[in-house]
């Protein structure tokens, strides 16, 4: 089975390891993701003003192109792409007059009726593959990993497009449990990381990152797992404890490790000490990995 795949810009520029790992893991699960032939940036944030129609054009164009390419359904890895596309889809369905205006503005070339569907990879894993099948595919259970799942915002909110309970999400935790890891919880798992404020209000991000990593550490985590490439950038590069940073990995990378896939196919660079204690060393003699952005 093959599903159309919308990578988004940041997966290509700053998070190629997430894509590598996702494609490898999905292949291992018997699902093929094929990248859309032509696509554009989704715009990252949903346009919240009632009249700012031009800012809906980017996500609407993604859907229109998807349909031109003969697809109805598209999967994305990026939380912000997911959120922006899903919310634009709501606009298309609830306010068709806005789509008419976009069509007219575009010289009739941009035409979309709201009938396509965007899915996050986590939805595919949870709702189509299923945690049982994922568990069955595990070759090296991550028994010694204590994972703090960090959800951030755009997977969950607003509720009407979120893919899990916004106050008590479980999807990442369930996934980590299926891989054999111990899940570490905390009330900051769903608190915003500061997002784009890393561009020019870095102190806001630093404060959020410090609080989140401190909680993860205090609750016993030895790795943070997440999905969003912007959360990843902030958490991986804005920790104030150089040399002793808590590793931040994508869930796809941990899935790959648990599936027994070679670290190189998961975008995990050369070995560090971290997982030598975390993974059974006998099976992972020349392991393994830590990926922090600052080092790449």
């Amino acid at each position: 089975m093959s599903i159309a795949y919308y990578p988004g810009c940041t997966i290509k520029v700053s998070a190629p390891e997430h894509e590598l790992a996702a494609l490898a893991v999905m292949r291992a699960l018997g699902l093929d993701l094929h990248e859309m032939r032509e696509w554009n940036c989704c715009g990252v944030v949903h346009s919240l003003a009632t009249d700012n129609l031009i800012r809906h054009m980017a996500p609407v164009r993604v859907f229109a192109r998807l349909q031109q390419q003969g697809e109805r359904e598209v999967v994305t890895l990026c939380d912000m792409c997911f959120n922006t596309l899903a919310r634009a889809n709501q606009v298309a369905r609830r306010q068709p007059e806005q789509m008419d205006a976009i069509k007219a503005t575009s010289g009739d070339e941009l035409n979309y009726d709201g009938s396509a569907e965007v899915l996050h990879l986590l939805q595919i894993l949870r709702d189509r593959v299923g945690m049982a099948a994922i568990k069955a595919r595990v070759r090296q259970p991550l028994h010694n990993l204590r994972v703090y799942p960090y959800y951030g915002c755009k997977l969950l909110r607003p509720t009407e497009v979120g893919l899990d309970d916004p106050e008590a999400p479980t999807v990442l935790g369930d996934l980590m449990a299926a891989l054999g890891a111990t899940v570490v919880e905390g009330n900051l798992q769903t608190r915003c990381c500061g997002a784009y404020h890393v561009v020019n209000r870095e102190n806001l991000v630093a404060e959020r990152v410090a609080a989140t990593t401190a909680q993860a550490r205090a609750n016993g985590a030895n790795v943070i797992v997440l999905s969003c490439p912007l959360c990843h950038f902030n958490l991986a590069t804005r920790q104030s404890t150089p040399g002793n940073a808590l590793p931040v990995l994508y869930y796809t990378q941990l899935m790959g490790l648990a599936f027994g896939l070679p670290p190189a196919t998961l975008g995990l660079p050369d070995a560090t000490a971290l997982f030598e204690e975390a993974l059974p060393t006998a099976q992972h003699a020349q392991a393994v990995p830590m990926c922090t952005k600052g080092e790449r």
Partner: peptide, 23 residues
């Protein structure tokens, strides 16, 4: 805030942050 970035900072930032900030 938009015009205050140095090229070195820009090189380190992912597009997702720049696009969102710009919007």
């Amino acid at each position: 805030a938009l015009t205050q970035l140095e090229r070195a900072d820009l090189g380190a930032l992912p597009p997702i942050a720049l696009v969102a900030s710009m919007r």
